[in-house]
């Protein structure tokens, strides 16, 4: 048995935290793990991946057609390697959600998404109904294709040296092409791997005032999140959304400011270690799951907190 783990590289950067967490998630399989890097950039990310504990080999395919995570060439490459593996996995991100189901269908196996625990080589735990239920399933497929909800795992250490092998890229079927990307370069930590996340909701009241949330986050070196309501109202960009249809986070410390705590939002942050809720509404559902709740006027609390932290 052996595992192929897809590792995302974006603008030359390995998604190290997600990969390191996926490696610890895979530990119960007690198998050798090969990391697959598909990239259009130079292969610097491979060296970083090779230093993570628990990696047998790092396989690198470097080609322009693999630069932007397009599903067709990426899936074709994974498929060409599939016969050598019993498990094909990746951190559950937009990148892998695009590629893995295509791979699964072409292997005639079911996709197992957002795994939160591996019980055995064929049995996996995953949330369903936006996290309102947790289901354990046993796969009867010969190859298990699954994505891992990495924020709930601790990162594997570094210090190992695994060999790096360069793969020959496959021929791009040419069905799609990359046009452009608008990613917001940010000095802030990545939302899904940040130690502290400060999120704002409808209660913030305006895009202008959302800046106070950003200031609080910057003071703490935290990532900024938002509820779906805040995104829909235009207070915050789409990719800040935490929740069922946004990002799932599990930081050490999560601030929910002006967020009522709709079930869709809780699904994305309830695994955080410490939750602080700041809300003007005594009855907001978020107060029932928060470790520390402060009820009062956000417009005085947030600046005061920013000053005193």
């Amino acid at each position: 048995m052996s595992v192929l783990l897809l590792a995302e590289v974006h603008n030359g950067q390995l998604a190290t935290d997600a990969v390191a967490k996926a490696l610890s998630a895979l530990a119960p399989l007690n198998d050798s793990v090969d990391i697959l890097i598909m990239t259009g950039e130079d292969v610097g990310a491979a060296k970083e991946a090779s230093q993570l504990d628990g990696v047998s080999r790092v396989l690198v395919a470097q080609d322009e057609t693999l630069a932007h995570g397009l599903a067709e060439p990426s899936a074709a490459l994974v498929l060409s390697l599939a016969p050598g593996y019993t498990h094909i996995a990746a951190p559950a991100t937009a990148y892998s959600r695009n590629i893995l189901p295509r791979v699964a269908a072409l292997l005639d196996v079911m996709m197992i998404a957002d795994v939160t625990a591996i019980e055995s080589a064929d049995t996996f735990e995953r949330p369903i109904y936006a996290g309102n239920a947790v289901q354990t399933v046993t796969s009867t497929d010969r190859i298990k294709v699954f994505s891992i909800r990495t924020p709930v795992f601790k990162a594997a250490g570094q210090g190992a040296v695994a060999p790096v092998e360069i793969l020959r890229p496959i021929v791009d079927p040419g069905l799609s092409s990359w046009v452009e990307e608008t990613t917001i370069a940010s000095e802030r930590p990545d939302l899904t791997s940040a130690r502290v996340v400060v999120s704002g909701g409808r209660g913030i009241g305006s895009k202008e005032y959302f800046e106070t949330i950003v200031k609080l986050a910057d003071k703490m070196g935290a990532a900024v999140g938002a509820s779906r309501a805040a995104v829909d109202l235009g207070y915050a960009p789409n990719d800040w959304q935490v929740g069922q249809t946004g990002k799932v986070v599990a930081p050490d410390l999560y601030f929910a400011v002006g967020i009522s705590g709709a079930i869709q939002h809780l699904a994305g942050m309830k695994d955080s270690r410490v939750i602080v809720a700041i809300n003007k509404d005594e009855d907001a559902p978020i107060l029932r799951i928060a470790d520390y709740a402060l009820v009062g006027d956000l417009f005085s609390i947030v600046p005061e907190l920013t000053e005193k932290l």
Partner: peptide, 28 residues
């Protein structure tokens, strides 16, 4: 025919409410 067999389905572990703090100073 399904490829995945359901072993069990459970409610997620709940989180219980913590404490109310009265001021920013107490929170910090």
């Amino acid at each position: 025919a399904p490829r995945l067999k359901v072993v069990r389905t459970v409610e997620p572990a709940g989180r219980s409410a913590g404490v109310r703090v009265a001021s920013v100073d107490e929170l910090v």
